[in-house]
């Protein structure tokens, strides 16, 4: 057996929370590993434009912000491990993280910053037509629907933001929302309402996504009249919230009823030495700025924990 690489702190997830935890841990003189299976940035990386992260009055693309955060963490010595945490075992005064590649690493403290993944609608056609018109990533797939009619499902920040992005490419964008008003930030709503290509289908739930080899329509139901209709669209972009990526610690730390990790005010979980930061944590607001704040607290608290071991 080759020696298992040992770190002071292992950070699971390379989104804004994980990259910030890497930055703070590195600056604190700790040996830090950031484990990320995809690209640095997590969900942020597939956001076309971010307008609510302080310091960027002109807005910044999620890709650029993620690159900058990674560069800053790397500058202070954080090491990046391109892999996924598959299992975590608690050892005396340390944790053993087994990765998907079967490689392992050991750390004295963990910061779980694994974020969340998009929820699905769970309607007929959604799974079958994935990649054939059903998408959860407008910046990835929007270009395939140039000059076509598409629908966006959802009413939060992501849904409205991506509807605006798609309106720049597509002929029309219909936002289908189950309520009669949006949850998205006021400023985003104003931009969407002013955009002539975007229309709103209020109080409608999605019944099915229809099509053969490609999406041909979105079947929706009016919640008051119970009447169904089919919107003739070739693309359906789904932004109906998120599920926490907490499976890897589900048997180790306390989760709430929705699977989010419960923490104390220093962001330690119910397991001493395991901290949580960002979207994976139970909290009211899930924003990049909040993830970054979480991570600073979690990294500093983890350092104190290590010093007292």
């Amino acid at each position: 057996m080759p020696d298992i690489p040992t770190f002071d702190i292992a950070i699971i997830g390379g989104g804004p929370a994980g990259l910030t935890a890497g930055l703070y841990a590195g600056r604190g003189g700790l040996r830090a590993a950031v484990v990320e299976k995809l690209m640095p940035g997590g969900l942020v990386a597939n956001t076309e434009r971010i307008d609510n992260y302080p310091g960027f009055p002109e807005g910044i693309s999620g890709y650029d912000l993620a690159q900058r955060m990674q560069a800053q963490a790397a500058k202070f010595g954080a090491q990046f491990v391109s892999d996924e945490a598959a299992a975590i075992a608690i050892e005396p005064k340390s944790f053993l993280v087994r990765l998907s590649s079967k490689a392992q690493l050991r750390a004295k403290a963990l910061v779980i910053a694994s974020g969340a993944y998009p929820r699905t609608l769970g309607v007929p056609g959604e799974k079958e037509l994935l990649g054939k018109g059903v998408s959860y990533c407008a910046v990835c797939d929007g270009a395939f629907f140039k000059n076509q009619d598409v629908a966006v499902v959802g009413g939060g920040d992501s849904a409205v933001q991506e509807a605006v992005y798609l309106a720049g490419l597509c002929s029309t964008v219909t936002v289908v929302h189950r309520r009669s008003s949006l949850r998205a930030a006021e400023s985003l709503q104003r931009v969407a309402f002013r955009n002539g290509k975007i229309s709103f289908s209020w109080n409608r739930t999605v019944v099915a996504i229809e099509g053969g080899t490609q999406v041909e329509g979105l079947r929706v139901m009016d919640k008051e009249t119970m009447k169904e209709e089919v919107l003739p669209v070739s693309g359906v972009f789904i932004y109906v919230g998120y599920h926490p990526n907490s499976a890897v610690v589900k048997d180790l730390v306390q989760l709430d009823e929705n699977g989010y990790i419960v923490t104390d005010e220093n962001l330690m979980t119910s397991a001493p030495g395991i901290f949580a930061a960002g979207d994976v944590r139970r909290k009211l607001v899930r924003q990049i700025s909040g993830a970054v704040g979480d991570a600073a607290t979690a990294a500093v608290a983890a350092q104190q924990y290590i010093e007292n071991l």
Partner: peptide
Amino acid sequence: SPTCPYCP
């Protein structure tokens, strides 16, 4: 597509 973080 170059803007797809899931592609690499």
